[in-house]
Nucleic acid binder design. Structure first.
Length: 444
RNA sequence: GCGGGUGUAGCUCAGUUGGUCAGAGCGCCAGAUUGUGGCUCUGGAAGUCGUCGGUUCAACUCCGAUCACUCGCCCCA
């Protein structure tokens, strides 16, 4: 993968074909579950984009420099905010629960680095309900993401799962008093990135938040809970803690989703509780999860998502929509798969067959012949440059086109042609007048 | 926004204290190979040494600025 402008990657043809094959596989899974496609413009009104968060320059927003327009527009930095805007404006014509997917680029003006781009693709699935949405949907999303990834040829992965209520409930229990809300958010952020910090660093930062010694002890044991390993054991420890109602609701939702996942045939090894998981400070309100490779540590998460009970209130106040969704980061995933040799990248062609042209006076006949193959559903390219047969076959070989058709004028007039398999060097003479299944099976 | 690294052929890079130093491998093109690719051999094309300025008899080499890319931090999936 190359990048001519920093952070804006582009692929060579073989990589693009591989990238698209992953994208198609993901799309296929999404549609298998009945999700419908959706697209929105690359730009949104600035006020819509800013509705996501507190920060005035969220994600290094790209603003459109259009002096003639009074509208103030910017490039989307994720697919959820545009979706919220979409629901707010079209809900009258939508059917709920609404299940949609969207595979599209987003833009962020951050400094790029490895596995982090300024333009990258997200594959989002979301389920939106009016007023309420049962917990089964949360489990279904996790199941869908797990199965989608499982069916790709990727390294071992697992999904960390948590519930925001559990985390905030606990933090509300230990952090009270002045500026409690800010300190809770700061504490949640520290916990979220705890694994990146040293132990000393973490606790010295925590002490800045005026957590009492007694509560620090509680925090410590709380953080240790998910070291237990087995989800059942972790839940068994969490249940009696009974810090407050919010916490209890979180534990109960978490337990329910895990129970549903069992019923939905998602094996335990794919999902494990991580009470530290917060997933940034965004709109999540319930279940949160993110998927990482077990052994590949140098890229962040490859998928993630969660439940948000308040999708549209910042955009339109009249109706309440709740949702649960997830996103797969293929712009991170695919280069890693290519680097690891897990993604077949040796084809620079979509064609299965190259029709070579030896006698250029018969170009019309060659083109008609190509047309016959195309009608049979075989992707066929006709070689149109004036080059030797050897050069034409070399062209097919380098592009990864498996078959070539070879015919001179005599053969054309006799309705014959040679099909050569470039991998096995096998050649077959075929009759070109009436071609059917036997030719199709020959080209498999 | 902050800090480090790097800019020489299409790609990956070498280039000594400033003076035969415009180089290699890969790739590309042609031929050996007159209907049949990969392998091998032979030949060939290709670079304003990122850009601008300075020092010097002399700059790819030293200095300054600038631009670009890249890695990390902040932030974030």
């Amino acid at each position: 993968m190359k990048s001519d402008i920093s952070g804006f990657p582009e692929f060579l043809p073989n990589e693009q074909i591989a990238f698209n094959s992953v994208m198609d596989a993901i799309r296929h899974h999404f549609e298998l579950y009945g999700f419908v496609p959706m697209d929105t413009p690359a730009v949104e009104r600035i006020e819509t984009l800013l509705a996501k968060g507190n920060d005035s320059e969220i994600y290094g927003l790209y603003r459109l420099a259009d002096e003639n327009s009074k509208k103030s527009l910017g490039l989307r930095f994720d697919l959820t905010v545009p979706f919220a805007r979409y629901v707010a404006s079209h809900h009258g014509n939508m059917i709920f629960p609404h299940k949609r997917y969207q595979i599209a680029p987003v833009w962020r003006g951050e400094r790029p680095q490895f596995g982090r781009y300024r333009q990258f693709y997200q594959c989002d699935v979301d389920i939106i309900g009016e007023e309420e949405l049962s917990l089964e949907h949360d489990a279904e999303i996790v199941k869908l993401i797990t199965e989608t990834l499982r069916d790709l040829n990727i390294p071992e992965f697992s999904t960390k799962i948590n519930n925001r209520k559990l985390l905030t409930g606990f933090l509300k229990h230990i952090i009270v008093g002045e500026k409690a809300e800010e300190r809770i958010i700061e504490c949640m952020r520290l916990i979220d990135k705890m694994e990146k910090m040293s132990v000393d660093e973490f606790w010295s930062d925590i002490s800045l938040l005026k957590v009492s010694e007694k509560d620090s002890t509680k925090l410590k044991s709380f953080l240790d809970v998910d070291k237990r390993g087995k989800n059942d054991e972790i839940l068994k420890m969490l249940k009696p803690l009974n810090f407050n109602e919010e916490f209890n609701a979180g534990v109960s939702e978490l337990a329910n989703v895990l129970d549903l996942l069992k019923k939905f045939d998602i094996e335990d090894r794919y999902v494990r509780i991580s009470t530290k998981l917060a997933r940034g400070l965004s709109y999540y309100t319930g279940i949160v999860f993110e998927t990482v490779f077990d052994d590949v540590k140098d890229i962040g998460s490859i998928a993630g998502g969660g439940r948000y009970d308040d999708l549209t209130s910042k955009i339109s106040a009249d109706n309440k929509f709740v949702g649960v969704g997830a996103s797969i980061g293929i712009s991170r995933l695919v280069p890693k798969l290519i680097e690891r040799g897990l993604l077949n990248c040796d084809k620079s062609a979509t064609a299965q067959l190259l029709v070579t042209v030896q006698n250029r006076n018969f170009i019309g006949s060659y083109m008609k012949l190509s047309g016959k193959f195309r009608k049979l559903g075989i992707k066929t390219e006709t070689y149109l440059q004036n080059k030797s047969l050897g050069a034409q076959i070399g062209y097919a070989s380098r592009k990864g086109i498996k078959y070539v058709l070879i015919a001179n004028d005599v053969e054309l007039l006799d309705n014959k042609a040679i099909i050569r398999n470039l991998e096995t060097k096998e050649q077959h003479v075929i009759r070109t007048k009436y071609m059917g299944k036997e030719v199709v099976s020959l080209l498999r």
